[in-house]
């Protein structure tokens, strides 16, 4: 357990090489890959997310922690696939068409990954149909859209309208975020959730997927 705790702590400090080494060591010692994932990597990322939300750490610290998480995952993922570990959900994420801002989108992507999601990051300047096509292709649970400009936020509405036209709106949880976006805008365009920060986005996405799966089972 001390080793798992150390992985979590080094991840929070952004020590990618050390995290990678310790994950390998934990696997060599026959520790449960799920335990390494949940109590080491994801727990470390959740702690960073909470600190980010409380202004205790800032964007640079989150980015290096995420890099450390990814370094650990490169070692761990083959084992997780081997044992058939299921992700917490599948999410398609991107910044909407005409908008090239990616920091907020990247933070949400990292936090979702830190919450155990399988992420399909479409990058920036993403057309409405590209979000939907990817979601259909991978069987996504969530579509996350980001916009930083008041001139591009209407593209979120366009994507939701397009989902309706294609008859797939109800298949996905739609989440939106970005500086000009707010709760009332989310309601106005028919998105399911708006979150103000990346850590909240991960919490809300996880709870929403659990709720949806609960309903369907």
């Amino acid at each position: 357990m001390a080793l798992i705790q150390e992985i979590s702590e080094l991840l929070q400090k952004g020590k990618a090489k050390n995290v990678k080494q310790l994950v390998q060591q934990a696997l060599d010692e026959n520790m449960d890959p799920k335990e390494i994932l949940n109590d080491g990597l994801l727990s470390g990322m959740m702690t960073i997310g909470a600190k980010f939300k409380n202004n205790e750490v800032f964007v640079p610290e989150v980015l290096v922690a995420a890099r450390a998480m990814n370094a650990g995952l490169t070692v761990l993922e083959p084992k997780l696939i081997e044992i058939g570990n299921e992700p917490a959900g599948k999410a398609v994420i991107g910044t909407v068409q005409g908008d090239l801002h990616d920091i907020g989108k990247n933070l949400v992507s990292m936090m979702l990954k830190g919450a155990g999601f399988e992420i399909h990051d479409l990058g920036v300047d993403v057309e409405p149909d590209v979000f939907i096509d990817k979601a259909e292709e991978i069987g996504a649970d969530v579509i996350c859209m980001s916009a930083l400009l008041t001139t591009t936020m209407p593209k979120m509405q366009e994507c939701i309208d397009r989902m309706k036209q294609r008859g797939v709106r109800d298949k996905y949880i739609v989440m939106i975020g970005g500086a000009p976006v707010n709760e009332s805008f989310a309601q106005q365009i028919g998105a399911d959730y708006y979150t103000a920060d990346a850590a909240s986005a991960a919490e809300v996405a996880k709870a929403a997927v659990q709720k949806t799966r609960g309903k369907t089972l």
Binding site: G14, V59, P60, E61, L63, V64, R67, D102, I103, N106
Partner: peptide, 11 residues
């Protein structure tokens, strides 16, 4: 680039 600069600052 913003992301690269952020990493540079952290490092």
């Amino acid at each position: 680039g913003v992301s690269s600069l952020m990493m540079d600052l952290a490092e």
